Amino acid sequence: MSSYASPLLDLPGAVAAHEPDVGVAAHYGDLFKEQRALARGEGLVDLSHRDVVSVSGADRLSWLHLLLTQHVEALAPGQATEALILSAKGHIEHVLYLVDDGETTWVHTEPGAAGALIAYLESMKFFYRVEVADRGEEFAVTHLPAGSIVEPPAGVVVRETPHGRDLFLPRAALPGFAAEHGPAAGVWAYEALRVEGHRPRLGLETDHRTIPHELGWLERAVHLHKGCYRGQETVARVENLGKPPRRLVFLHLDGSEVTLPEPGAPVRLASEGPEGRQLGRITTSARHHELGPIALAVIKRNVPAEAPLLAETTPAAQELIVEP
């Protein structure tokens, strides 16, 4: 378990998060208030526990283009994108959230993922003019929600997406930036909005055999018409000739239940009851300030799209993310 503890855990009302978000706050005392603030474009989220990696050098984009699922060879400065690194069999190993500043490509990824990511990148350097570095000790990822009017400090690298802006903020600047541009919202609020947005997360929605097609990552993180990369054969074969064995689904959970189904909880057909066949699993569950209890789940592709489900014992209605 990580020993990191954000300085924002010293803020009033802060309650520490558990795995995989150890080191930052789950909330600061009022989950729904924090969600509503983010939805209005106010406040910030402390993601300083996430790993940060940089790739510099003249060949960085052409080199990364060979390794990633995304087309990054001509990535313009300031243009944000997502990319995957796959195994030889096409299974997802890494998810990279990246932006290039014209001289360096900046990446943030899951807590604890930098070591394996850097080891792989280093093994693929060969004769290319690139330098890979772990920058987590120097920079803290800080999220500003969509609609925020906060101006990032001069010189700070910004990764802007439809969901908000990720700042690669110098760690020493984090407490002062939060004091000036808060209120801070915890990762529970951030995760609830992620679930609402149907956005998968490595290690939660994925397992050792997940392929991009199952989670809707083809639209955001895979370019289907670029050159070869490891795992491309699986991507092309499933896209052109087959269908993925599983699919990500959004669930509206019965609001009368007191507790949320935990990640890993079985998903079954409601018609078969709680002793029926397991057809999938809950991957993330959350309480949303407007939608109530919601979840993401990975289920078998051939589960009827209109079928009522049970998340363990909680009734759930499907909303399609990946077409069956």
Rank of each mutant, 00 (worst) to 15 (best):
Y4W: 13
S6W: 04
E19S: 14
V22P: 02
V24Y: 01
V24S: 02
A25C: 06
A25T: 00
F32H: 13
E34G: 02
Q35P: 05
A37M: 08
L44T: 02
S56W: 05
G57Y: 02
L61D: 03
L66M: 14
T81I: 12
E93R: 10
V95M: 04
L96N: 01
G112V: 05
I118W: 07
A119T: 13
S123W: 10
K125W: 09
H143W: 15
S148V: 08
V156T: 14
G164A: 12
D166W: 05
G182C: 14
A184Y: 00
G197R: 15
G203S: 11
L204H: 09
E205I: 00
R209I: 09
E219F: 13
A221Q: 05
H223C: 14
L224N: 10
E233A: 06
N240D: 10
G242P: 07
P244E: 08
E257W: 13
T259H: 15
A265V: 02
P266G: 11
V267E: 11
R268A: 03
L269W: 08
P274G: 07
G280L: 03
G280V: 05
E290C: 07
L291K: 11
R301A: 14
V303W: 10
A305E: 12
A305H: 04
A307F: 08
P308D: 08
Q318K: 05
L320F: 08
